[in-house]
Design a protein around this nucleic acid. Structure first.
Length: 434
RNA sequence: GCCCGGGUGGUGUAGUGGCCCAUCAUACGACCCUGUCACGGUCGUGACGCGGGUUCAAAUCCCGCCUCGGGCGCCA
C-alpha cells in the first residue's frame, strides 16, 4: 500500500495515512475516539462531532470492531491521548468490514479457550500475547541459525517423505507415494548423519517432523519443528557444548531483541537466560537424586526409564537446564554409540528443562559392523536401511548430534502451559484444520 | 493405547432434582454523555452439545453418541 505510515511512526505535524484494524470505538457523546491498531501498535483517531463533517463521523464511528480501515489526517501532539499523539481525520475508508459478532475478542477483555482460539487463529493472532509468542518464536529460529553458523554448521534440508522410519514403522504416518507405501518422516536423524559423514561435516536442520503417536498431552504434537544438529568428529561432550551454546544464545537474543514481546507476555521482569554451564548429571546420579527427593512411591533402579514424575522432581531439585548423560545402552536407540570401555553405558544424553525433556542426542555408532548388529538386535531388517548403512562402508567419521523440540524450547522459555500455544496451526490427535 | 474430567447466549462463566420462561461479565442493538485510555449510564436482544431414559418435575440423575481438555505410557 503506497504512502502508508505505521502507527508507531506517525509524528506530530505530519499528514499521514494509517491503515489497520479497528481496535475499539469509544463514543463519549460530543467527542469520540477510534483506536486503530496495526502491527506496530495503536493510534487514537479523534472525532469531534460538532466540528466535523457528519458523513465522516458516521463512517468512523459506525464501523465494527476488527474492520480494516485506512485513515488520512493530521497527526497532533496530545498529552491526553494514550500514545501522546492523535489523528484528526480528513478521510476514513472502510477497506474490509468485520461482522459485529466476533468468535473471540482480540482485545483480550474476555478470555477464549485455546480450542476457540485455534479455530480462529487469525483473529487470535491480533491479540498482543499470541502475536508476541510468534514474534519470539521467529527470533528463536533466527538466533538458533546464527548460533549454528558460529559453530561452523551448514543449514540443510532433508526429505520428509521417506521409505522407512528411524526406528521402525509403528509411529509413522503412512502415505501413498505413486502407488508405493511411504511415510512422513519422524526425524531427520539418518539423513543428517549421512550428510555429516560427507564433506559438509557439521550440519543443522530446522524442519517438521511427524509422529503418529496418539498421545494427548500439553507437550506433544503430531507435527513438530525439530532443530537438529550433527557434527563429524564430534563426541557427545562436544555435541552438548554446541547444544548449550544454541539454547543459551536463543535466550540471550530473545532477552535482547524481544523486550516489548516479553512485556506483552508479562515476562519482562523475570526473564533471564539460563545459568551456564548446564550441569551434566549422569543417569546414575539422576536416579539417585530422584530417589533422594522421596517424591516417587517406588524407588528407581538402574535400567528404569525416568518417569514424568521423576523428571519433574529432579528438575525442581536442579532448578535449571541440565543434561542427563551416560544412559543405560538398553533404553537408548541402537544408533547411539556405547562407551568404548563399558558396553552397558551409552553416550546418549538428554537436555532437560525443569519442566520437561527438550533435547535428546548422543554420539552415533559409526562402525559398520556394529551398526548392522544394532539393527538386527532391534529386530529391524538392515536391508531396508541399505541406503543408510551402505554409506558407513566408505569412511564414516565418528560423529554426534542432537535434536531440540522447537516448540518445547519456546514453550518452556515463555512458560506456556500448552505446546499448541507455540504453533500457529497445531496438529494434534484431533486437530487437522485449520 | 489406558485412565480421569468437562460441554450453558458470539465469547468467557454461575448453576449438585422444584427457588431457572437460567446468573454475571463482555460483545451486539437503541438512547444519554466533549478527553476516553477495560470510558461511564439506562433499556433491550441472545444459551442448557445430540439422541434416548428415570421422575409428578431434569441444565442438574442414568445410558449411548459427538466433542473439548487433562493424567500416565512414550517421546522432542
Amino acid at each position: 500500500m503506497e504512502n502508508r505510515t505505521y502507527t508507531a511512526d506517525a509524528e506530530p505535524g505530519e499528514t499521514v495515512t494509517v491503515a489497520g484494524w479497528v481496535h475499539e470505538v469509544r463514543d463519549l457523546g460530543g467527542i469520540a475516539f477510534l483506536i486503530l491498531r496495526d502491527t506496530t501498535g495503536r493510534i487514537q483517531v479523534k472525532f469531534e462531532k460538532d466540528e466535523m463533517d457528519d458523513e465522516l463521523v458516521e463512517t468512523g464511528l459506525g464501523v465494527a470492531r476488527e474492520s480494516v480501515v485506512s485513515v488520512t489526517g493530521d497527526v497532533e501532539e496530545e498529552p491526553r491521548a494514550p500514545t501522546g499523539v492523535e489523528i484528526t481525520p480528513e478521510t476514513v475508508d472502510v477497506i474490509a468490514p468485520a461482522d459485529t459478532e466476533l468468535p473471540l475478542d482480540p482485545s483480550g477483555k474476555v478470555d477464549a479457550e485455546l480450542s476457540t482460539r485455534l479455530d480462529n487463529r487469525t483473529l487470535d493472532l491480533r491479540g498482543e500475547e499470541s502475536k508476541a509468542i510468534f514474534e519470539i518464536r521467529g527470533e528463536t529460529l533466527r538466533a538458533a541459525r546464527d548460533a549454528f553458523r558460529e559453530a561452523d554448521a551448514t543449514e540443510i534440508n532433508t526429505p520428509k517423505i521417506v521409505a522407512t522410519g528411524t526406528e521402525g514403522g509403528t509411529e509413522l504416518f503412512p502415505i501413498t507415494y505413486f502407488g508405493r507405501e511411504a511415510f512422513m518422516n519422524q526425524s531427520p536423524q539418518l539423513f543428517k548423519q549421512l550428510v555429516a559423514g560427507s564433506g559438509l561435516e557439521r550440519v543443522f536442520e530446522i524442519g517438521p517432523i511427524f509422529r503418529a503417536e496418539e498421545h494427548n498431552t500439553p507437550r506433544h504434537l503430531n507435527e513438530a519443528t525439530s532443530i537438529d544438529f550433527e557434527g563429524a568428529f564430534c563426541d557427545a561432550s562436544e555435541a552438548m557444548d554446541v547444544c548449550e551454546q544454541v539454547v543459551a544464545s536463543v535466550y540471550e537474543s530473545v532477552a535482547e531483541n524481544c523486550e516489548s514481546q516479553l512485556e506483552a507476555l508479562d515476562l519482562a521482569a523475570e526473564f533471564e537466560p539460563p545459568e551456564r554451564p548446564f550441569p551434566r548429571i549422569s543417569y546414575e546420579e539422576a536416579i539417585e537424586r530422584i530417589n533422594a527427593t522421596g517424591e516417587l512411591d517406588e524407588q528407581l533402579v538402574w535400567g528404569d526409564d525416568l518417569p514424568t514424575e521423576g523428571e519433574k522432581a529432579l528438575g525442581a531439585d536442579v532448578g535449571g537446564h541440565y543434561f542427563i548423560t551416560d544412559w543405560p545402552s538398553e533404553i537408548k536407540p541402537f544408533y547411539i554409540k556405547d562407551h568404548d570401555d563399558d558396553p552397558e553405558l551409552s553416550t546418549g544424553f538428554d537436555l532437560m528443562h525443569p519442566r520437561m525433556e527438550l533435547v535428546s542426542g548422543g554420539q552415533r555408532e559409526h562402525r559398520y559392523e556394529q551398526l548392522i548388529e544394532g539393527f538386527q538386535q532391534q529386530g529391524l531388517d538392515p536391508e531396508a536401511f541399505e541406503y543408510y548403512t551402505s554409506m558407513f562402508k566408505y569412511g564414516m567419521p565418528p560423529h554426534a548430534g542432537w535434536a531440540i523440540g522447537g516448540e518445547r524450547l519456546v514453550m518452556t522459555m515463555l512458560e506456556l502451559s500448552n505446546i499448541r500455544e507455540a504453533v500457529l496451526f497445531p496438529r494434534d490427535r484431533q486437530r487437522l484444520s485449520p
